[in-house]
Amino acid sequence: MDIRAEVWSPLQNTAVWLGAWLHGLEATDNVIDALADLGADGLVDVLGDIRRSVGLDGEEPALRLVLSGPGEAPALPAGSAAAEAASVSSAGALVLADAAPLTHHILVPDAEGNWEWFVEEGPLPAPAWLSPGEADELLTQATNEAARLVMASGYTTDALASPRLTVGTLADFYDTPGLPAAVPGRAAKLFARADRVGAIIETVTRRMNDHRIDPQLLGLWRHIRAARMAGVAYAVREFGRLT
């Protein structure tokens, strides 16, 4: 199993850059450069279609991130082509709100970097709509509980006792290529916490090749995904308030 695909999301930053661009807070050239850095070059050719399709004045964020993983189906209509594609993709999906009520555009990348575009008429499954504070608290609680279980098992490692020392080599990878300047601090903090917890998990399970505490660590995946989705939704809402 690809641990990095579960704990890191380049689609998170892709969503934030697109959201800032859609709300006029980033220049097109900057977005194109960011998409190239994120491996999302395939979206460059459809930026015009994205701008024409998205509705910026609705109650929901103009753009959302949908992530899924083991034991968690994507929050898309069950049995739909979009849900099937998102379940197969390790990256997740982007959901664009249309100007027409109850219409959504769903973009899903495949392993080759190509993107499928789906249109869903009708309501989508309701996301959790966590605030950054709620998502951060859930991730913190889950991290603390995992640490407690690990300590109770008698297992110790520098990766848990001093994670900054062991995940330092991953820091540049998780931080690149950064976020738009307009990203609110609360969202950036939430992304940073999700990145740090993801780096710890990768260090222990992949870099150290130690799987004795997988059940404790892998239980954090759901909360990492929730934090990333909440951060994107919050950031895009705030972009709308700035314009």
Rank of each mutant, 00 (worst) to 15 (best):
A62H: 09
T28V: 04
R52M: 12
I50A: 11
V54M: 10
G48H: 09
D98C: 14
A78R: 12
L107Y: 04
V66E: 11
A62V: 13
G42Q: 09
D45S: 15
I50V: 14
I106Y: 01
A99M: 13
V88T: 11
V31L: 15
D57G: 06
L76T: 03
A82W: 01
I106G: 01
H104P: 02
D41Y: 05
D45V: 10
V54T: 14
A100V: 09
L67P: 00
S87M: 05
S80L: 13
S90G: 07
A40P: 02
L35N: 09
E60F: 04
I50Q: 08
R51W: 05
S89C: 12
L65E: 05
I32T: 11
V95H: 02
V31I: 07
A40N: 07
N30Y: 01
V108F: 03
L63K: 07
L35H: 05
A34F: 02
V31R: 00
S53N: 12
A62G: 14
G39D: 06
D41T: 14
I32P: 02
E112I: 03
R51T: 10
G113S: 10
E60V: 11
A82N: 02
P74F: 01
A83D: 02
V108P: 02
I32V: 13
L47M: 13
G113V: 10
P61M: 11
L63A: 08
L56S: 08
G48D: 09
E112F: 12
D29I: 02
E72K: 09
I106E: 03
I50H: 04
V95L: 07
S90Q: 11
D33C: 03
D49I: 05
A75T: 08
L35W: 08
G71T: 06
L96P: 01
A97I: 04
N30T: 06
V88M: 07
A83R: 15
V88D: 08
P101A: 15
G48I: 06
A27H: 10
A62R: 08
G92W: 04
L47Q: 07
V108Y: 03
